[in-house]
Design a protein around this nucleic acid. Sequence first.
DNA 1: TTACAAATGTCATAATTATTACAGTTTTTT
DNA 2: AAAAAACTGTAATAATTATGACATTTGTAA
Lengths: 237, 237
Amino acid sequence: MTFVRIKKTMIQHASHTVHSRLIFQCPLCSSIPAEQHDSFLRDVRFSVRNYKKNDVIVTQGARYDSLYILIAGEIVTEMADEKGDFMKVEQIRAPHPMATGFLFSADNRSPVSAVCKVDCSVIVIPKENVYFLMRKYESFMLVFLSYISNKVSFLSEKLRFVSLRTIRAKLAYYLLKESEGEKSFRLKTSKESMARLFGVSRPALVKVMMEMAGERLIDVNRRDIRINDRAALQKML
Amino acid sequence: MTFVRIKKTMIQHASHTVHSRLIFQCPLCSSIPAEQHDSFLRDVRFSVRNYKKNDVIVTQGARYDSLYILIAGEIVTEMADEKGDFMKVEQIRAPHPMATGFLFSADNRSPVSAVCKVDCSVIVIPKENVYFLMRKYESFMLVFLSYISNKVSFLSEKLRFVSLRTIRAKLAYYLLKESEGEKSFRLKTSKESMARLFGVSRPALVKVMMEMAGERLIDVNRRDIRINDRAALQKML
DNA sequence: TTACAAATGTCATAATTATTACAGTTTTTT
DNA sequence: AAAAAACTGTAATAATTATGACATTTGTAA
């Protein structure tokens, strides 16, 4: 476990910082009309935190009262299971908000841990200020709303994925999605992390993958995949 | 599969119906200050639909553009897996909103099906009207927001639950939660539907339950449960 | 280039769970 | 009260997956 090292923290007036305009690159704020930018910058209160690779930004089970917006770097969120193993939940690249989902829920503990894949910078906006901004800036409110809604959709799909009974079905689902319609493509992650994403053991995943290759449904060469029988994969769902 | 029978549909001015005041019993609207009730009733546009037991109100994968508020009855939402089996997701009793989560997401298809456990009545408010109400009535907006946020928390917990590797762990988690701290309690549902909730087979669930009884961790008599060793159950998570 | 770490594919064995079937019990319906 | 339906517990067998180990290949840092 790596402890969080906060390199720099500033709670300050937004318009005084180099980050002031950067905030409008984040999807949450990008929809705010240009003529409201100055006003928004006066209203927003935030701090900036910098993290190193493998730092833990958010800890599963801990309470949080702020909106986190990732402005540089890349993180993964993961959920620990009963044996302390991690299941990867999602990957977030800058500039995107994180920890949007539970901020306004009755139980404000994070369901996941967020870990930096590389060095990261994060803008932190207190919940009360987010409330205020939502009331004052309608587009902010609407985008925030759609963000949480999308999170619901994402989690629902994730739930469906995890609920697929067999590794075969999960793999079929995953390959169809990752291929993006292409016949040949390259896996973005290692088999190891795929297995974690699936919540299964790595040998079992590889075995099933090779079985599918044996049946000529797919060709496999390390991370290079070719889908030969898309229809067969679809039937597994 | 039971087809939906719509007994009565009215798109109308709220203040003209017997349901007009009923809407404020729903948690989404109950926080609206009394002095705004008349105004709110003038602004809200909705229809009422009645369903019979086992009717399908919402179909998994279909698109929906309205907010559904259950004002009478009880429904379950379920997710079909690859074999057409259903995994129970949640149970909703009147008066509560349903289908809140994906209404404002980019993909407005429902991730679940909603089926009536008994005869039900539902208020249906078009998305645009919900938008309008949110902008005009701040408390409505805030409650709606917390509703979706809670949905995120719910799904996250559900995801964690489904991700527990063994039936033992799931059962321990479930019993601890259902017991609500009591030593003795009665299961609310059948083993059959518990198994569906867990996403496992019924015989496997019963077997594990009886194993735990054999180890004196719990006593089981049909639906009556007594927890003898709460600490041991907790260790399984 | 060498050396080392990470990723990959494979295997035997153990553990877990699904499937199918059946009989006894309880609840609901008629 | 009788009949039907739903629920419960059980068991044998089959299928799936986990575990732990190993050899090989690939990528990377020294």
